[in-house]
Design a protein around this nucleic acid. Sequence first.
DNA 1: GGTGGATAGTTGAGAGATCAACTAGTCACG
DNA 2: CGTGACTAGTTGATCTCTCAACTATCCACC
Lengths: 170, 170
Amino acid sequence: MAAETIEQRESWLTEEQQGSWRHYLEGTARFVEALGAVHDRTLDLSLGEYSLLVQLSEAPERTMRMSALADGLVLSRSRLTHTVARMEARGLVERRAAEGDRRGVNCTMTDAGYAALETAAPGHVAAVRRIMVDALEPEEFAVLGRIMAKVAESSKASGGTEEGLTALCD
Amino acid sequence: MAAETIEQRESWLTEEQQGSWRHYLEGTARFVEALGAVHDRTLDLSLGEYSLLVQLSEAPERTMRMSALADGLVLSRSRLTHTVARMEARGLVERRAAEGDRRGVNCTMTDAGYAALETAAPGHVAAVRRIMVDALEPEEFAVLGRIMAKVAESSKASGGTEEGLTALCD
DNA sequence: GGTGGATAGTTGAGAGATCAACTAGTCACG
DNA sequence: CGTGACTAGTTGATCTCTCAACTATCCACC
């Protein structure tokens, strides 16, 4: 038969599991690629900027603390600072000192930001629908959501700090 | 109740579907973050470099054409060129002209590359297992694979060129 | 056999991401 | 109150990615 691969050797997965893993990798890669292409080619907001504005649009006063935004978007603080700085320069958001905690900074969506979100939303939504939602049975999409929620939980438990390392060596 | 959000307004999804979508986004983001952190902190290969070496390790002669590699990894040609150039500088891979098509370039894994892959594999595999595989029921993982295979197909149909744009306007 | 259009891959400049260092404010505890 | 540890956010150097332009080759067809 075929030679054994490295990943099979290393106490890896059954062949069926390995197939699932490859499909997962390919699916997520191709999906973000396709959705990102729609944003780049037809929308004025990148996928990341769009997600940021969606979060803000749903927050009270369309305002969130930088750290809450970073957590919600699964972004490093540094990356968020840079991204917000660029968006602020474009007039999509504004920053001002948070009251109560003088370290804090609130990020608020401007009217221009809201308008940009309204403009981009139909294209974004149509693309998500076309590429993912309509490609699946309704129950499949629901199952996908439940499964990825479990993965998110598990990732939170593992990620962030060094526990990954230590957990690896037990 | 709560004010309507932009995404609800725009012929979006049911509330249940919207939940699935958010879970998908959060799950994939947290997962790559957690797995990437393991690579950055404990392994000598980034997730991208690791994936590239895995592909090569399974190819005949541990050699692939640049374009095949780019397609398999869902990477732009430009990005692959830069990545391979960096890895070549580190001695992990080598490039040489392909015979038969003088435009082509073959990328081959060196012994050092193979050794680096062997060293990194246990940590990578353990992390994937811990963060995703063991967090799910076996059937859930299998279902995830099947669902993402469909998403990959659908993304291929939509992505790449401009059909996304035109399909949007039908 | 040469011309047009595709394909393979590279390049370099600019945009964006990462990492470590840094400022500043808060909190707990003696 | 003051000192040490922690949290919030920013900065800038460096690395990586993207995008458009470019070289070179291949193929089809007249």
